[in-house]
Each structure stands twice: as C-alpha cells, then as structure tokens.
Design a protein around this nucleic acid. Structure first.
Length: 269
DNA sequence: ATAATAACCTGAGGGC
DNA sequence: TGCCCTCAGGTTATTA
C-alpha cells in the first residue's frame, strides 16, 4: 500500500521507535526481493545507533555511523511492529532493538532493502530523481519547461520519476481529473493554465492524502481491516464505469503505458 | 539517446 | 471446488 503519503506515514511511524536506538539483531528470512538483500546487512546495522531517518521519493533512508540502509516498499511492502515472537506470512526481515521488534513484510517482493556508504542521495537509484512534489523545486515554471519538448501522454509523464517523484497511478489519475486534463494529452500541448492547475492539484491531493495517513496507518499496523480514509475520497481511481461526481457521465477506463487510467470524457479535455 | 515493453512475484476475484 | 484468466498502489532492465 505504499503511495508517497503512506511512505511518509511509515517513516513518521518508525522514526520515534528507531531514531537514536541501536539495532540488536537483524534476521533475514527471505533475501530475494527486487534485488538481493546484502548478505552483510546485519554486520552493517547491528551495534550501531540509528541517527537519522528520512524519506526521499518513496525510499526511506536509515542512517548510522557506517552508512545508510535504503528501503523501498515496492507495491506491497509494509513495516509493522510485532511484539513477542509473532511472525506473519510474508514477513521478510525482522529488525530488533532493546525496546522494539519491527518486521518488513512484502507479499509480492517488489520492494528493496539495500546498503550504501557515503551520501545516500548519490546512490544510483536516488541520484537521478526529479524534485519532491511538496517542495518549491516542483513549481509551475519547472513543469512548463519540462513539458515543453515532450509528446509523451501527460499521465505517464507526471508518473515518471525524472519529472517529479511520488506521483503514482492513483494520484496521477486524481490530479488530472481535478485539473480537467485528459490523461492521453501530449505533455507539450498543455496550456499555461493547465500546467499551473496541475502543479497545484498534485500538491493538494498529496497533502490531503498525507493528512488522511493517520487512518491508513491503522490499517498498516493491522489493528483495523477497514479501508483507509483516503480511499473513500477518490474521485476517479477505481471508479471506471461509474458516474462522474461532477457531471454524472460514465467514467471511462483505458490502459495507458500499461496502467489502467480512469477519467471523465466530459469534464476532462 | 530516447521511448515503449517486459519482467520481477503473489494473491484476490470473476467466469465457467 | 477448482481451474484459468485478469488485475493490482512500482520501477528497473531490456529492447527497438
């Protein structure tokens, strides 16, 4: 369930549990994720105090005096606190400190756990990333310049990490609906007004989802099987064939860059 | 160099 | 019940 807002939520949840703490054991139960977990991961972590926990795009960085552990949750990764000796299906790695026991759980194994020394931002996976959507680096002038010479459909364009990070399939669909832009429109055909609306709506929808993260978090921790709050406020994602909340036209569902894309053929141009 | 697509993996749900 | 198909919140490696 890792959208950028959820990765942010996980980071915020894990931070008070691990920051300043020392890892006492690392148990790798399944080393085959997106890439193999480094065989010496435990050597890098055990006995060292974690002195920083930060997020960049959908990566969570755990810094200690030796380097940084990089975690990506892929499509189905979660980090859950499990007291005692509990082990759930698809738990892949268990991190233990004096006071806590955290499990990395990942059904589909699309996530990653890596180790890097030096600046984590210089790691191959991180160094070419576009701006964070919620900072001023992602602004109207920037997107206008980026769009100017690309004929790529706007939906996959804003989902590309080189354009802006953290906009996944859900938020791409939602922000394009809010901006009244058809997902297939080539990036270079967007008007100044549309680009301006799109920047603002991406920021707004992400902020709103982060604020709903508290509810989603409970689902994360497994204390509640109910769908997250934000899911209930989705306007187009997952609503193909249903009525547009604005004009009651039937929402259309197409496949674009191998991703399902829902939009209103009447409201979006 | 750039852009489309194939691949990684497991589970849920629908049709028959 | 069970088999087969499609689809799923991501992103890199490979191919054209």
């Amino acid at each position: 369930m890792p959208e950028l807002p959820e990765v942010e939520t996980v980071k915020n949840m894990v931070k008070p549990l691990l920051e300043g703490a020392t890892i006492t054991s690392v148990k790798v139960m399944q080393p085959k994720l997106r890439w193999p977990i480094p065989t010496d991961l435990a050597d890098c972590l055990v006995g060292q105090p974690i002195n920083s926990i930060q997020r960049r795009a959908k990566y969570i960085l755990f810094g200690n005096p030796l380097g940084n552990m990089i975690i990506h949750l892929g499509m189905t990764g979660t980090i859950q606190e499990r007291p005692g000796e509990q082990i759930h299906k698809h738990d892949r790695v268990i991190f233990t400190t004096k006071d806590h026991r955290l499990c990395y759980n990942d059904v589909r194994k699309f996530g990653a756990i890596l180790w890097t020394t030096g600046s984590p931002f210089e790691h191959n996976l991180l160094k070419k990333l576009g701006p964070e959507p919620l900072t001023d680096d992602f602004n109207i002038a920037y997107l206008k310049e980026k769009c100017r010479r690309s004929y790529k459909p706007i939906k996959p364009f804003i989902m590309a990490n080189s354009t802006v990070v953290g906009v996944g399939n859900i938020y791409a669909a939602e922000s394009l609906f809010l901006s009244k832009i058809k997902p297939k429109r080539p990036a270079s055909t967007l008007t100044a007004t549309e680009i301006s609306d799109l920047v603002l709506n991406i920021k707004q929808v992400l902020k709103k989802a982060i604020n709903a993260g508290g509810t989603t978090l409970r689902d994360f921790k497994g204390t509640d099987g109910k769908p997250g709050y934000f899911k209930q406020s989705l306007l187009v994602y997952g609503r193909g064939g249903k009525e547009c909340v604005n004009c009651r036209h039937i929402l259309e569902q197409i496949t674009l860059a191998q991703r399902s894309s829902v939009f209103c053929p009447n409201c979006q141009h």
